[in-house]
Amino acid sequence: MADGKSTTLTKLIVVAIGMFGFGFAMVPFYYKICAVTGINSGDEQSLVKNTQVDKSRWVTIEFDANTNEDLPWKFTPEQRSLKVHPGQLVQVEYDVANTSKHAIVGQAIPSYGPARAGAFFRKIECFCFTPQKLAAGERRRMPVLFVLDPALDKDLHTVTLSYTFFNTDTKAQTAALRKTGVHG
């Protein structure tokens, strides 16, 4: 009788301790189920799912930087070109300096070569998202963080990302236009 009781006791204690552990095991289990079934992923950026790196090919990206003539800034990429796999997260930096004697707000506008490549640049962070204000003589390094979508056309081996900085002050723009006589 006593043996029977202590055997039952031991078994039940083991079950109780096991279930205490099971409560904690539910934590990784929960995240695993969420990951496998793709539920509860509202906290993740949809971009992350697109970054499946296509290691079968290389694409050369050329970086180009220009300033509109009414903007007295110096604007250059840190590097002229980069070889990447589509899907790879890329960060490049640009160097920009205000050479004038007063503060100016500029806005960078991107363009792509060939134009159809533009749809495959997925930018996560870019200085072109917002106007940039530089104080007189200020110099700054500004990043662009992007992924080249793996769906990029297979025949494209070289693409160009080009930025042009414009002066957001419309009066300065009009003055420049008058000077060149484009406006007739």
């Binding site: 096991g18 409560g23 539910m26």
Partner: peptide
């Protein structure tokens, strides 16, 4: 009771460590 009370104990232990010991369950 033996199967579920320990699970409750685990859950409130996680609350306790979240409150006092810097975990983030």
């Amino acid at each position: 009771l033996i199967a579920t009370m320990p699970v409750l104990a685990g859950a409130v232990t996680m609350l306790l460590t979240d409150r006092n010991f810097g975990t983030h369950f």
